[in-house]
Design a protein around this nucleic acid. Structure first.
Lengths: 340, 340
DNA sequence: ATTAATTTTGCTCCCGCGAGCAAAATGTCC
DNA sequence: GGACATTTTGCTCGCGGGAGCAAAATTAAT
């Protein structure tokens, strides 16, 4: 009788086994699993059946080793407190997988760890590295680029001026000017800007744009406050400190936040700790348009990044063999809701 | 002369190059990068220096191919709408990386896609698969186990009765009884249970436990409502439908939610669409203790899963060569806040 | 049918490293 | 210094598949 014992580990079935079963050579078997295969439909069918019976799937490690293409990209992330990261990961993983790219997820603990994370990725011989964290400053990038172990280094959803990286991001300058204009149009006159960590010049782009634009066009100098991470909880603490004890006259009339993570933390504390109403006592704007921004609780006026388009462009870049300048800025959309 | 052109792609430096530079054999070079290495400190130093100069790092694909150990685990996720997933990912990736495991992140689009996702992982010859999604029902598991392409199949943060999987989860039965008792103690008498998708029997555990326990100990039969995904937005819609138009007498006095994702959606709609106060008009409990549950806005009474302990146990399981029953239930902790 | 053009198949030689063993080097003891 | 134990080093062979070419099979053209 056939032994019906518990299913054994079957990782050791190789193309040779399938070749024997199908009565063809090993190379024909391997060809059957490549899309560019030059193979007759007859032997393809034979191989399919034999592979099915034996439970064979090609070993991508070996394929990658022999072909020098891993079809693997590393995704380096650090700030898991930011809910927008979840959205970005979902979008990226979905679209990348659809195009045949696998993803190595690396949690970069802190700035000092960035180098190790990059090394980690390089040992798997990833074809590209995608950075969606915040702690990858110029120094880290330079180290990575110096080692030069990846074909492409992509900064996703953040502008980078480094000429050796590929930056796929929303046009922050345009976006912040649009926000500034909207804020002013709606009659707000004393904005406060809530900024994130200042780890590199690129992060200052939104803040600088807003502040400079406001000063130049509307005269006054906006207050600014900054938080050391894009974390709603931290933002709440900072905002509470910054606004506690103020009265109608000294309170900003709107809090312009660098992103939704900060705006959400700010909203919570303004309502529940400071007892103020949004937008009557103080309005709020965000950036990113995370899912909860649309929910009944926040109704946050924010700026939507065209993440899907950006991810689609990303896979196009990954697939390209050219060595040109792939940097690209996308235009987002101001989502007007109740918070401002 | 040595060509000093711009930093080239340096993925092609091999142990042989380092061996030549250091004046040792290739095997000594490789040994220098293994921790169990039997190597003299003198040649280790020589190799380190040479490797540093050439920018060499071992190729893990080749190592994995030769040793039949990839040190890679696949992480399969599907419900990215649930904020708790972000917490789980952070914890898992951090602890796994610390122990030398790399992570292949696979976004499982839907139930039909689960098989492909598993195949995907198997082609990279991962040492184990970790499931933290919801759509991996018994049928999917059986298919995966039948193919048997992984040494270990771990269901994380969800109980599974399948004897061939390893389930690392919180003790749902104990937890729900604790919640039921607490709810009753605090004087609530007409609970409604808000459940998630009913894709497999395992998902019903919390609901069934609560409902059965309540019926047996407190007489009445709780109402139940279910949402097709752990998504706050969906939960909001369902709850609005379920509660709209009710008055004091017909409204449940507490909404017991299967997890925080549902509780958050429910909270938003109860406050902002139905205009009710929490907990005065209706109380709420959750499960998971996501970061925002503690925030000023929700102050959600919920049940904390000991994620760190669970993740630590997971790496222990991964490292073990034994073939015994690794299933384990952890005890969590009821976090009492303002929502109930 | 014959020859040439084209597709399909099989083969050699790698890809970069590890297991396991034999040779060489080093250390130990009297 | 000699005999032996112990560490360190080098080597053969294989992990599973790809590039690229030559042989074989098929198709097209005359």
């Amino acid at each position: 009788m056939p032994d019906e014992k518990k299913p054994a580990f079957a990782g050791n079935i190789t193309a040779d086994d399938v070749a024997a079963e199908a009565g063809v050579s090993r190379w024909t078997v391997n060809r059957a699993f490549r899309k560019d295969a030059s193979i007759s439909s007859k032997s393809l069918e034979k191989v399919r059946i034999a592979a099915e019976r034996l439970g064979y799937v090609p070993d991508l490690r070996a394929a990658s080793l022999a072909s020098d293409r891993s079809n693997l990209v590393a995704l380096l992330i650090d700030d898991f407190a930011n809910p927008h990261k979840l959205v970005m990961m979902e979008r990226l993983t979905r679209i990348l997988r659809r195009e045949g790219w696998d993803i190595l997820l690396v949690n970069t603990l802190d700035r000092a760890d960035a180098g190790h994370a990059l090394l980690n990725a390089s040992q798997r011989r990833v074809d590209a590295v995608i950075l969606i964290g915040i702690q990858f400053d110029d120094e880290v990038l330079d180290t990575a680029l110096h080692a030069r172990r990846f074909r492409k280094l992509i900064i996703f959803a953040r502008t980078s001026r480094n000429p050796n990286t590929i930056s796929i991001a929303v046009d922050d300058v345009h976006a912040m000017k649009e926000i500034a204009n909207y804020v002013h149009e709606r009659g707000f006159r004393r904005p406060m800007f809530l900024a994130g960590p200042r780890t590199s010049s690129a992060h200052l782009l939104r803040k600088e744009t807003f502040v400079d634009y406001w000063r130049q066009h509307f005269g006054s100098e906006p207050e600014t406050v900054s938080v050391s991470a894009y974390d709603p909880t931290l933002a709440a603490g900072i905002v509470e400190n910054a606004l506690a004890g103020r009265n109608k006259a000294t309170l900003p009339d709107i809090l312009v936040c660098e992103n939704d993570a900060l705006a959400i933390g700010a909203t919570d504390v303004i309502r529940h700790k400071l007892g103020l109403r949004i937008p009557q006592d103080i309005a709020i704007t965000g950036f990113d348009d995370v899912p909860q921004a649309e929910g009944a609780n926040y109704r946050l006026t924010t700026y939507r990044q065209p993440l899907t388009d950006m991810a689609e462009y990303l896979v196009k870049v990954l697939g390209s063999e050219e060595d040109r300048d792939f940097d690209r800025l996308f235009q987002g959309k101001l989502m007007i809701r109740d918070s401002a």
